[in-house]
């Protein structure tokens, strides 16, 4: 299992979509790295999230790869990760931040 942190705004993502995202993230990690994810789902309290000084509608998903990732592969995976998140939630890509880190940076 590899660590995955999801930071979302409170009330923005329904429990049904959260469940679908959890499943999708696990599938993504299995496909990309051959392992599952241990998800830390964190909700930013209402009135507590700001992007560019304005109330935030952004979600961040951070995955720590089990091994160092070549940048070409990382870029493709990041695109898949964020597009998959956006398609599930209906958010735009301007509202989704994805991070795939190498293990040494954890």
């Amino acid at each position: 299992m590899i660590p995955c942190t999801c930071l979302v705004q409170e009330g923005q993502i329904s429990s049904a979509i959260e469940s679908a995202l959890r499943s999708k993230l696990d599938g993504f990690a299995h496909e990309a790295f051959g392992v599952g994810v241990n998800i830390n789902w964190i909700e930013v309290p209402k009135t507590g999230g700001f992007t560019a000084s304005k109330p935030s509608t952004s979600s961040l998903v951070l995955i720590q790869a089990p091994v160092a990732v070549e940048q070409d592969k990382r870029a493709v995976l990041l695109g898949e990760l964020c597009n998959g998140w956006a398609s599930e939630t209906g958010q735009t890509l301007n509202e989704v931040v994805g991070v795939i880190s190498d293990p040494a940076a954890a």
């Binding site: 942190t5 930071l7 830390n40 964190i42 930013v44 309290p45 507590g48 999230g49 700001f50 992007t51 560019a52 000084s53 935030s56 952004s58 961040l60 301007n94 931040v97």
Partner: peptide, 15 residues
């Protein structure tokens, strides 16, 4: 640019 800057506030957050 400002568009990149996220500021999130929590209370007693275990993480």
């Amino acid at each position: 640019p400002p568009a990149f800057v996220h500021a999130f506030f929590f209370e007693d957050a275990p993480h």
